[in-house]
Nucleic acid binder design. Structure first.
Lengths: 341, 341
DNA sequence: CTGAAAGCGCTAACAC
DNA sequence: GTGTTAGCGCTTTCAG
């Protein structure tokens, strides 16, 4: 029946050509040991001749799996996230999985919509870093409920018990704060991100803990919480510098704000690191090459992606039911913006 | 039959519950006007109650389309490419398409494998920027042959007639070279990328043309061709600076090499832009914030992605058969590294 | 070692 | 406005 020119050849076409059954063809193409080498070869030859390409859609439907891993990130176009995606793709491809990708733009509504669509598309597993905004989690619980592997990376939801790949934000923040203290800075401010996200909460807590361990008085007015965009970095530093006792160092919740803060201060004639020390978080590519270069905490994005993919693939294939939280180490990178000794 | 607990409900389950036929359910869920409002509502209510989620796989198989757009880039983790991906995702999602993504790592073999896998997955269209290495195109011709929409962006294959979204590399290179000349640079070198890629070829030609129009003698020894990594940038600048008559300006084929070249020269005590002018290409995020900031050509990555997605979706939906090449304008961004006047 | 037959979940011509 | 039926292309029991 499938005789018209531009229809894709199917296993039936090649079966008919050889006057055998489609099941044999299917088995041969899947290297089923029950098929003799001879017939396998014949079948593969005809498949080639006809330009046969398996229809994965059909196979997926039949097998009730899509061979696809979904990944949703706040923003594709951000170095950390694109590194993670790259890592996921790297191992997923080698394991024969496709990767479908979407970005939430840090919007809860879009995230929900994406996640539901991925469910409908029967992704075999979902890797996600939640949007800043997201504060309801039914769309994600759906996955756990249906026993579809779910892996959080970076921004995880504490109340959902599943696999998580995070970095040790607390320790990173602690170390970078300690470093500022070691450099002789005494009055250290902090630009914090949304506190509903554990990453930013942990960073703040690491900072507070470092102050406490060093018996430095903790001053609430030195902490500013926003969403850590360039613009908000500028607003925050304005606010900090207009305090009666302005800080002599600022731990910025990410490199983006660290940079905008530095530029603002430089324009005010304030010297970095002499007058004020600046550190960031994430080790964006630019932080190494700006002047002064920015001290920061490196997060291994590519490795996180690889780990997330490895983990989810193991879950997909073994159906193992134990969850783990993998905490990857961060690295303190000391550069010019905080080195005054 | 579908009675076991953790099986997903299907339209048959909801049909049985209401003692109607599955087709009615299908039609209702797809808002087919032939179904009365009442039954639609009843059906949707039951669907909700059962937690029904359409199985897109099945629907796709039946409809012979996957609602999926494939995109393959050399490297996900590169600002320009992740911007393009972001743009593609942006419009694809709004139009109800999924985006599956893969990276070739600039390896021809991996690219071929990816593209074939995407074909087997029956992507409705493919958006691709080819790998540096790729010099055979059968895997791509397959798409044109089967009339599956194919859109090239940035790095296109001249011999395949299809839609293309490119930037005007020639004009960009011309303008940036002209800018160097306007700044009084006379002996301008060029770091070029692989010449099998039209992007890099066009950049070189734009450079040569600008020299010619300005009656500047063209010196072959001032052009170095490599793959434009940081390391190769350093090797290239070493070679250029050891010429009997070294250049007084270098047009680097991308910002990455521009940066590594600058760092090398600075370490040698050569001043930029006073002693030597540097320009790059692509406007990587870092080029704005390094010191000196790098003059460069901005390519609208996000817009390219949006355009590519719009174009391919129109092709997917209309089956229109005319191809177009959209050339997006570039923008010359003059910064410190080339401004000595 | 191979074939027949059923079915994955959905859709759409065709009937009424 | 709704039901019947067949089938998308593949896999997989069950038989032989």
């Amino acid at each position: 029946m499938n005789r018209n020119k531009n229809a894709e050849p199917t296993i039936h076409d090649i079966a008919r050509e050889l006057e055998i059954s489609a099941s044999t063809v299917s088995r041969a193409l899947n290297d089923n040991p029950r098929i003799s080498l001879k017939t396998k070869e014949k079948i593969k030859a005809v498949a080639d001749k006809l330009g046969y390409r398996p229809n994965t859609l059909a196979s997926n439907l039949r097998n009730k799996k899509s061979n696809t891993i979904g990944i949703v990130v706040p923003l594709i176009n951000r170095h950390f996230f694109s590194s993670v995606i790259s890592g996921v793709e790297d191992v997923a491809f080698k394991a024969g999985f496709n990767v479908v990708i979407s970005q939430s733009n840090d919007l809860a509504a879009k995230e929900i919509s994406i996640v539901q669509s991925m469910f409908s598309n029967r992704v075999d597993g979902l890797i996600i870093s939640i949007a800043m905004q997201t504060d309801t989690f039914d769309h994600l619980k759906l996955f756990s409920k249906k026993h579809i592997p779910l892996v959080f990376f970076d921004r995880a939801v504490p109340e959902i018990e599943t696999d998580k790949i995070v970095v040790d934000d607390f320790a990173g923040a602690y170390r970078v704060t300690q470093h500022l203290i070691d450099q002789g800075y005494q009055r250290i401010g902090h630009l914090a991100g949304p506190q509903n996200l554990t990453t930013y909460l942990d960073r703040k807590n690491g900072y507070i803990d470092a102050l406490r361990k060093n018996r430095i008085a903790f001053d609430e007015s030195l902490i500013i919480v926003n969403t850590l965009t360039s613009e908000e970095g500028v607003l925050a530093v304005q606010q900090l510098m207009s305090l009666p006792e302005p800080p002599d160092a600022i731990f910025c919740g990410n490199d983006t704000t660290a940079l905008s803060v530095m530029i603002y201060l430089r324009n005010k004639g304030i010297r970095i690191p002499e007058d004020i020390g600046i550190v960031g978080f994430s080790n964006e590519p630019f932080s190494k090459v700006v002047s002064p270069s920015i001290s920061t905490i490196a997060q291994p994005g590519f490795e996180m992606g690889q780990k997330a993919a490895e983990l989810i693939i193991r879950k997909i294939e073994n159906k193992e039911r134990t969850y783990q939280t993998i905490t990857l180490p961060t690295e303190l990178i000391i550069r010019e913006s905080s080195s005054r000794k």
